[in-house]
Design a protein around this nucleic acid. Structure first.
Length: 165
DNA sequence: AGGCTCATGACTC
DNA sequence: GAGTCATGAGCCT
């Protein structure tokens, strides 16, 4: 027996995302089409009211981002990661919609100016893309870099926010 | 401009 | 400890 996350799809014009909740908040999130045959622990049976409320916030936040705006409401997040990763993710959430930062800038923002590469690693480890805007992080000279959900998505999200390099 | 190499920090096995 | 990496700066064609 594991954590038993509650899995709920989020349908948007851009596709069907999948959100997974723990007892503490949104724990995982992923893009449509990104096959994750695993985690069959996720059940949708009975969704506690608490989680339904979170999910509402998630939907709202996601739609805002897809519309290129900063979400006004946000579900609680239950992110599993190291202290360093949490600092990175926290810094990512401060990036306003429609703006981008470089990995180096994030590194500097969290007080580890030389840990640029590690920042990249932390972004890749981000369990909740889009809501934690890892897509707004580009390489130093505005190259796209990489993206766990597919570079395709990264570019699309940026375009939606009115960012074009 | 494009490409290769190396320093660097955190993570994983 | 060694290997990996969603970087970045520097040095080569």
């Amino acid at each position: 027996m594991k954590k038993q996350l509650v899995e709920i799809p989020v349908v948007t014009p851009a596709g069907k995302f999948t959100a997974r909740y723990s007892e503490k908040g949104l724990a995982e999130f992923n893009f449509p089409k990104v096959g994750r045959a695993s985690s069959r622990d996720a059940k949708t049976e009975i969704v506690p009211a608490k989680i339904r409320g979170w999910h509402r916030a998630t939907e709202s936040a996601l739609k805002s981002i897809l519309a290129g705006r900063t979400p006004k409401s946000f579900p609680p997040l239950d992110l599993a990661g190291t202290a360093f990763q949490k600092r990175v993710w926290s810094a990512l959430r401060k990036i306003p919609a429609g703006q981008t930062k470089s990995y180096g800038e994030i590194a500097r923002a969290i007080g580890r100016p030389k840990a640029v590469r590690a920042v990249g690693g932390a972004c890749g480890a981000n369990p909740v893309p889009v809501l934690v805007p890892c897509h707004r992080v580009l390489a130093a000279n505005k190259k796209l870099g990489g993206f766990s959900g597919g570079l395709d998505w990264k570019r699309r999200l940026l375009v939606r926010e009115g960012v074009w390099l």
